Simulated scan of single mutants.
Amino acid sequence: MAIKTQPTDASVQDFLDGASPARRVGEGHRVDEIMRTETGAQPVMWGPSIVGYGSYHYVSPSKTSRTEGDWPKVGFSPRKTAMTFYGLKDLPEGAALLPELGTYTEGAGCVYVKRLEQIDIDVLRQLIRIAFSRGDDPRP
Results as ranks from 00 to 15, higher is better:
residue 1 M to T: 14
residue 2 A to L: 15
residue 2 A to H: 15
residue 2 A to D: 14
residue 3 I to K: 08
residue 4 K to C: 15
residue 5 T to V: 12
residue 5 T to M: 11
residue 6 Q to D: 11
residue 6 Q to Y: 09
residue 6 Q to P: 08
residue 7 P to W: 05
residue 7 P to G: 10
residue 8 T to D: 10
residue 11 S to T: 08
residue 11 S to D: 11
residue 12 V to M: 05
residue 13 Q to F: 14
residue 14 D to V: 10
residue 14 D to T: 06
residue 14 D to E: 14
residue 15 F to S: 03
residue 16 L to M: 03
residue 16 L to E: 00
residue 17 D to E: 09
residue 20 S to W: 12
residue 20 S to A: 15
residue 22 A to N: 15
residue 24 R to V: 03
residue 27 E to A: 08
residue 27 E to W: 07
residue 30 R to F: 12
residue 30 R to H: 10
residue 30 R to I: 13
residue 33 E to Y: 10
residue 35 M to V: 14
residue 36 R to Q: 09
residue 40 G to S: 05
residue 41 A to Y: 12
residue 41 A to M: 12
residue 42 Q to H: 09
residue 44 V to K: 13
residue 46 W to C: 04
residue 47 G to V: 11
residue 48 P to G: 15
residue 50 I to W: 02
residue 50 I to S: 06
residue 53 Y to L: 02
residue 54 G to V: 05
residue 56 Y to A: 00
residue 57 H to P: 07
residue 59 V to D: 07
residue 59 V to K: 06
residue 62 S to G: 13
residue 62 S to T: 08
residue 62 S to K: 13
residue 63 K to W: 07
residue 64 T to K: 15
residue 64 T to W: 13
residue 65 S to Y: 15
residue 67 T to G: 10
residue 68 E to M: 06
residue 69 G to A: 10
residue 70 D to C: 08
residue 70 D to V: 07
residue 71 W to L: 15
residue 71 W to K: 06
residue 73 K to T: 01
residue 73 K to E: 02
residue 73 K to Y: 01
residue 76 F to H: 04
residue 76 F to T: 04
residue 77 S to P: 11
residue 77 S to Q: 14
residue 78 P to T: 01
residue 82 A to D: 04
residue 85 F to V: 00
residue 85 F to W: 03
residue 86 Y to S: 00
residue 86 Y to P: 02
residue 86 Y to M: 04
residue 87 G to H: 01
residue 89 K to V: 04
residue 89 K to I: 08
residue 90 D to H: 11
residue 92 P to G: 08
residue 94 G to K: 06
residue 95 A to V: 02
residue 96 A to L: 10
residue 96 A to P: 02
residue 97 L to A: 13
residue 98 L to E: 03
residue 99 P to K: 05
residue 100 E to I: 03
residue 101 L to W: 02
residue 102 G to Q: 03
residue 102 G to R: 03
residue 102 G to N: 04
residue 102 G to V: 00
residue 107 G to S: 07
residue 108 A to T: 14
residue 109 G to I: 09
residue 112 Y to R: 09
residue 112 Y to S: 01
residue 113 V to E: 03
residue 114 K to I: 06
residue 114 K to E: 07
residue 115 R to P: 00
residue 117 E to I: 02
residue 117 E to C: 00
residue 118 Q to F: 05
residue 118 Q to C: 02
residue 120 D to C: 00
residue 120 D to G: 02
residue 121 I to R: 10
residue 122 D to H: 04
residue 122 D to S: 00
residue 124 L to V: 07
residue 124 L to E: 06
residue 126 Q to M: 13
residue 126 Q to K: 09
residue 126 Q to C: 09
residue 127 L to W: 08
residue 129 R to K: 13
residue 129 R to H: 09
residue 130 I to P: 08
residue 132 F to H: 10
residue 132 F to C: 12
residue 135 G to R: 11
residue 137 D to I: 11
residue 140 P to N: 09
